[in-house]
Write a protein that binds this DNA or RNA. Sequence first.
DNA 1: CTGAAAGCGCTAACAA
DNA 2: TTGTTAGCGCTTTCAG
Lengths: 322, 322
Amino acid sequence: MVLNNKGPVSEATRQRVLKAIKELNYHPYRFARVLATRRTGNVGFILSEKHFNRAEPFYTRIFLGTEFEARNFDYYVLLTSIRSTFRRSDLPRFLKERNVDGVIIAGRINDEWIRYIKGREIPLVLIDYVPENLRVPCVLIDNVEGGYEAVRYLLRLGHRRIGFLGGSPGHPSIQGRLEGYRKALAEQGIPLREEWVITDLPETTIEDGYRGMQRLFGAKDLPTALFAANDAMAIGAMKAIKEAGYTIPEDFSIIGFDDIEWSYHTDPPLTTMRVMKEEMGALALRRLIEIVEGRNPLEEKVLVGVRLIERRSCRLLSSGET
Amino acid sequence: MVLNNKGPVSEATRQRVLKAIKELNYHPYRFARVLATRRTGNVGFILSEKHFNRAEPFYTRIFLGTEFEARNFDYYVLLTSIRSTFRRSDLPRFLKERNVDGVIIAGRINDEWIRYIKGREIPLVLIDYVPENLRVPCVLIDNVEGGYEAVRYLLRLGHRRIGFLGGSPGHPSIQGRLEGYRKALAEQGIPLREEWVITDLPETTIEDGYRGMQRLFGAKDLPTALFAANDAMAIGAMKAIKEAGYTIPEDFSIIGFDDIEWSYHTDPPLTTMRVMKEEMGALALRRLIEIVEGRNPLEEKVLVGVRLIERRSCRLLSSGET
DNA sequence: CTGAAAGCGCTAACAA
DNA sequence: TTGTTAGCGCTTTCAG
């Protein structure tokens, strides 16, 4: 009772117990406790193999955020990867055997997985992905606000001819960022130039950015600035821009999104919108614990903001230029 | 007994039991088992914060290897990060409370941590680091062989003037790679040019590679090829080379080590020695389990080989050139 | 070879 | 407010 802060305990015995704990260097034995309470004190953290192997540590930093926060709540987190395609046979063991109190999934994933977990009534929180037809609590990047701010920044630098380099339009994050882009332009009464908006790439990788930029070069005239929907694509685009003989930011200003480590090392260093990865992970854990403990079990999306990181890939347009 | 394959069981009952297990969809309850056997079925995986946050997913891929292998042995792996400096107060909980059967540590780490774990007699395997004065089973990259092969490759391409770009000499991996470099040159009777061997950089990052290369430019004549002790430094060096107005591989051939994801995306793509990251992680887990189960508990270093990945940062020297 | 029972360390329910 | 006890699901020991 002393340990768990429940039930009535007189202050005197409380102190006596505490003292004994100290003297004996007593630690409660987690596994016995589990057996008695049916609470495992574990949470599962699932990443698709694709996301785990991403060249940049985006989702692993999110994991780091949860793991760190988990320490405060005395939870262990079991990290595992799954294939993108749903197969019962490679269900994480901790799901099959219910060795977790709840699960966090980061990144886009086959909805079958989500449906399965919901079906088994295992508490679930999603990070950076929201399925179309399923109600699940999510922790999301504020993509539309972020996209809006990114474009606003280019606008402030005097750009009026701004392209958008997005990935597959099926990706909700991309849609949000595109929406922000649209909103910022509309607000200034700048018409959208369809040929400067590239959204039909297979994925959102460096390669896609590279190809997307090459496609953009096909337009009959070119923008002066570019908003890439993530840093990987921005990096691919920079490569294409350089290969075409242009320089950054003289000929093109470019801003990314995510703030992955490598953005700092590009030439020039990439201006971008920083996503608070650790914070997202921590938030998801707190949310999950709330659900596990029955508090606040409403479906709910929580948005976490982004921040402009100014580096050197964007330039101020002098007043004569357009 | 059927489940654990021990004790005498007649084939008939064995089948009956198996059938019942199927029908009831029975899963043994891990925590009850732990309580009875005192075996947790968990292993801890520790990474220093610095390594966890490395821009490229080197150690996280090693983790992936152990996690994957752990599935075959029905272990869970608890991943956590610690600060580089030893502080009792931020001991991982799973150590304090002995919730793991053993621990894997990947990457260089303060020896205090190692001493603590050894002191508590918790089975331990190290990956990619071997402390000076402590005997601990390790899984290591075959650095000298790898360095040797890298330089042999440059030699085969006709290079005779080959520089070495290393990081801090305190790092055992770097020392091994340097040793391989030495060996390959010596074998061909090529004298070592001290001013082409850069080993007094603070770390082994992109920045260090960049600075190291600039330093190398100070030599009165320049090598035609360069062996960088890891890809990060190779990338930094490439940047410095380009800034100095040279091109790769026309003016300099360069080979790296590690094969991190980004090496594929450099311009030109970087030729490098691939380290088998997943394999190292898997190996460490098997080694750890052996120790936990009392088999084969000798101190032992196991080396895992590397493989040349030929991309486009090295060129063949024509016979007239030196 | 099979069945019964004790006990791992904890929580929860109940009696004092 | 405190002390006692059953029982969580498993392994292990011992008797049949």
